[in-house]
Design a protein around this nucleic acid. Sequence first.
DNA 1: CTCTCCTGTAGAAACGTTTTAGGAAAAACG
DNA 2: CGTTTTTCCTAAAACGTTTCTACAGGAGAG
Lengths: 338, 338
Amino acid sequence: MAVSSRITIRDVSRATGVSVSTVSNALNAPERVNAETRRKVVEAADRLGYRPNRAARALPKGRTFTIGYCIPAGRDGFFLDTFLHQVTERASDADMDILLFTAHRGQTEVDTFREIIRRGAVDGFVVSGTTHDDERVRLLLDTKVPFVTFGRTDLGASHSWVDVDGRAGTRATVAHLVEQGHRRIGLIGWPEGSISGDDRVTGFLEGLDTAGIGHDPSLLVRAENDLAAGREAASHLLDADLPPSAIVTVQDVLAVGVIAELNRRGIRAGADLAVTGFDDSPPAIFSAPPITSVRQPIEEIGRTIVEFLVHDLEVGDGIPRSELVEPELVVRESSQGR
Amino acid sequence: MAVSSRITIRDVSRATGVSVSTVSNALNAPERVNAETRRKVVEAADRLGYRPNRAARALPKGRTFTIGYCIPAGRDGFFLDTFLHQVTERASDADMDILLFTAHRGQTEVDTFREIIRRGAVDGFVVSGTTHDDERVRLLLDTKVPFVTFGRTDLGASHSWVDVDGRAGTRATVAHLVEQGHRRIGLIGWPEGSISGDDRVTGFLEGLDTAGIGHDPSLLVRAENDLAAGREAASHLLDADLPPSAIVTVQDVLAVGVIAELNRRGIRAGADLAVTGFDDSPPAIFSAPPITSVRQPIEEIGRTIVEFLVHDLEVGDGIPRSELVEPELVVRESSQGR
DNA sequence: CTCTCCTGTAGAAACGTTTTAGGAAAAACG
DNA sequence: CGTTTTTCCTAAAACGTTTCTACAGGAGAG
């Protein structure tokens, strides 16, 4: 009873005295129908507020006009908000909807993808948080379901992706620090194996090279991505015989950890020792002092991803496209002061 | 071509030698079918990986098994992430999907709601960021589409909602400050007119009452919800003849603004003057010092909202249900120290 | 003036389900 | 043993679209 009898194509047909198929044609393939008839139909459809039922349309079309997106398990509020906003808006521009899902109870994420595919619930996927050899990507390639990833994978050549050039990010960070007069720069990276993590480390080393600074292995430590680990890593660096005057980290939370350790030791971040982060997330923005960080242009990423996917769905050539977007260094107090 | 011929009910029918309708019955209404037949069907369906096509199912069922959610325009990353996670997970438990949308280009949000309804794209909505006299709520009531709001409205009696007891939150904050020995407590609220904002102010006044502290109108100032406004409001309070020893704010960002102003004046937040926020968002967590704040149990809210909505969709009694959930005061450095 | 082609429309089939209405066989009843 | 009920299954209709095929009538060609 809840459903207040919706307006169907039949209502428009009745209102105009023209057959259902003509209404459909008038709205979808205007060239096949007489101008006057078309006018009448469009007018009536407008007046009645007719919109084709999505489900009914999906059936004969063989398309759902829906894009699937799985909320990543590791929460990253900051990223998700902006990203989803952008993705949803762009999808809407292409008259597509976004279907949101999470790994279903007791299933792995890839199982959930499989479910969604079997249900024929979407036309394609946006996949974020990719790993080296991503199961989801393999599944999607196998089943030939269109998708675009945010982040590269080992199978990058055979699918569309958009990613941030993390190398360029840390390279720029190092250049900035060198400009501030730093020569002895430490790095806190993630354990080896993650694409973006390794990329950021590479950019760091390249930055040193460019500046003509030799690379001291004792200044490179690795830590899990949390505050405590950052703190510990910082402690390690600071206890070295020749401690660095600047510490680069591959993620803001690590930088916050570093600052915590500096505070404990009475060292002032910014004034006494430079610290930088990556991602330009709330921890960097709201930290005291605010942390110099590398901003990922999430708007551009979201836009491009949807553009790639929609293009593929519409044109259907299946030719992989990819784009590496340039991040931007946001300089704040934590790296200035001497 | 992309579509690798999906498995339909017909395939299961062929595989078992039983009619299509029997397959459907075996899967949906097990009691109408012989145990042995059912076993055969279930086995085959399982083996083939059959899942009913969503769109096809929606048609005769008159239900889409989808819940609509409009991403609020005012971005609030922290909230959105946790909330969406919860909502999506719970929806998935009820075998429902989430359809995400934003106000479409050049349309108001309520127009977009209307569109979604006309398309018959969802069974119901989750509505967040409600206002006093919410247009969306009116539309949904008019069209008799089921929905649950996160936040109260003036029409609260006629629809289901879940909200946080903001009054209880600021009341607890004041109690905490009084316990710390504060007697002269200032408040930075939002301009009058927002439900949750006014609620928080009320709680503040109630808190004073409970403690037997008189209410000095000069200690209550109002500001827009941004850092600069918080700073300015703090300045106003501090310049008073008899400045407060503690400042309560109705949102974390305002508290960050207060701390900025304190820093400028060489006053130490926590040690010299207590500051509190609301929402327990990243600004509070990553501020220095970390800010005492009122945490909204977003998980519980998300869970309850979906529960209410699904219940309504399933049972269809349309009886409004509501719940006011208790927030939790998270005490941090910014309110301790003397 | 007839034949062909084109234009514009309508009817019917199809998409993959669910559901309703029957119907045949088996079981229960008298 | 005949009648009624029950059990189990199937065929067909329906959901709201799109699309394919067919057909009528008018225009143009010969």
